Computed example of a mutant assay.
Amino acid sequence: MAFAVAGAAQCAEVPAWPDNYQARLQVLALVQTINANILASTSATLTLEKWCGDHAMSTTPKVTAQLQGGIAKPASPAQRERLQVTADTPIKYRRVQLTCGGHLLSEADNWYVPERLSPAMNRLLEETDTPFGKAVLPLAPYRRTLGAKLIWSPLPDQWENGQPPMPSAAAGATLDIPAALFEHNAVLYTADHLPFSEVRETYQRGLLEFSPPPTK
């Protein structure tokens, strides 16, 4: 059985992960690794591209943003405070799915202050599929994480203190990986420490859509 990517520009079928203890440990390690890599980075987009290339998920590891139209989420008073703007300062909202090689890697909500971006950056965000992180690279941005949450784990809490989970009774069973793996909420700042965007990113199982490592 192989799972397909929903909502991506193209479908990519990959071998499924087996449902056994070793595979669950491997998946947990991979999720924690990409989670830590993104938290430590200045650009989630560039981190995702490197992940896609390192795991041969695309012949050309390029992350693109599929714009999700028809969605409106006005900035809250708390978000305006974090972005250091007044109640009447224009804030734009952008929702995208980030994909690479047909794999859905994340879904992102983005609130940004257009007057703190250049006209060229605003055009890229409004008219093209350029990921937000790439569009604003000339600002030399950095991130401050507001929150990070693991949504799913292949192993139960305190698994290290008990017996290994029993493998699935069905021969050849595959691991049931949900769509959402973990979530980040962050504020982006310019090199001059001026906040210009708040993002909420939900990272998807597409991050694991590559052939599992061989087992002994």
Results as ranks from 00 to 15, higher is better:
3 F>N: 06
7 G>R: 06
7 G>P: 14
9 A>M: 00
9 A>H: 01
12 A>M: 01
12 A>C: 02
15 P>C: 07
17 W>C: 07
20 N>R: 01
21 Y>T: 10
24 R>Y: 05
27 V>K: 00
36 A>M: 00
39 L>D: 05
39 L>M: 06
40 A>S: 11
40 A>M: 05
44 A>W: 00
44 A>P: 12
45 T>F: 12
46 L>K: 12
50 K>Q: 11
50 K>T: 15
50 K>I: 14
54 D>M: 05
56 A>E: 02
56 A>M: 02
57 M>Y: 02
57 M>H: 02
60 T>Q: 15
60 T>R: 09
61 P>G: 09
61 P>Y: 08
64 T>Q: 04
65 A>S: 13
66 Q>V: 14
66 Q>P: 08
67 L>R: 05
67 L>V: 14
69 G>P: 11
70 G>T: 15
73 K>M: 10
74 P>D: 05
84 Q>S: 11
84 Q>V: 15
85 V>T: 13
86 T>E: 09
86 T>W: 01
86 T>H: 10
88 D>W: 02
89 T>P: 13
92 K>Q: 14
93 Y>K: 05
93 Y>G: 07
95 R>L: 15
101 G>H: 01
103 H>A: 12
105 L>Y: 03
107 E>Y: 04
108 A>H: 04
110 N>C: 12
111 W>R: 10
112 Y>C: 14
114 P>M: 08
115 E>Q: 12
115 E>R: 06
119 P>T: 07
121 M>H: 08
121 M>E: 10
123 R>E: 11
123 R>L: 13
125 L>S: 12
126 E>F: 13
127 E>N: 10
129 D>Y: 15
129 D>I: 15
130 T>E: 09
133 G>E: 08
134 K>N: 14
135 A>S: 13
136 V>R: 01
136 V>Q: 07
138 P>M: 00
139 L>R: 02
141 P>T: 11
142 Y>Q: 08
143 R>C: 14
144 R>S: 08
144 R>Y: 04
146 L>T: 14
146 L>G: 14
146 L>K: 07
147 G>M: 06
148 A>S: 13
151 I>H: 06
151 I>W: 02
152 W>E: 11
153 S>W: 03
155 L>Y: 06
155 L>R: 05
156 P>Q: 11
158 Q>W: 06
159 W>Y: 13
163 Q>K: 12
164 P>K: 03
164 P>W: 03
164 P>C: 01
167 P>A: 05
173 A>F: 02
180 A>I: 05
180 A>H: 07
182 F>N: 01
183 E>T: 11
183 E>Y: 04
184 H>I: 12
185 N>P: 12
186 A>W: 03
188 L>V: 12
192 D>V: 11
194 L>T: 15
194 L>W: 04
194 L>V: 15
201 E>W: 03
202 T>A: 09
204 Q>H: 09
205 R>A: 12
206 G>E: 06
208 L>H: 02
209 E>N: 06
209 E>Y: 07
209 E>L: 04
211 S>A: 08
212 P>Y: 03
212 P>W: 01
213 P>Y: 00
215 T>C: 03
216 K>L: 00
216 K>A: 01
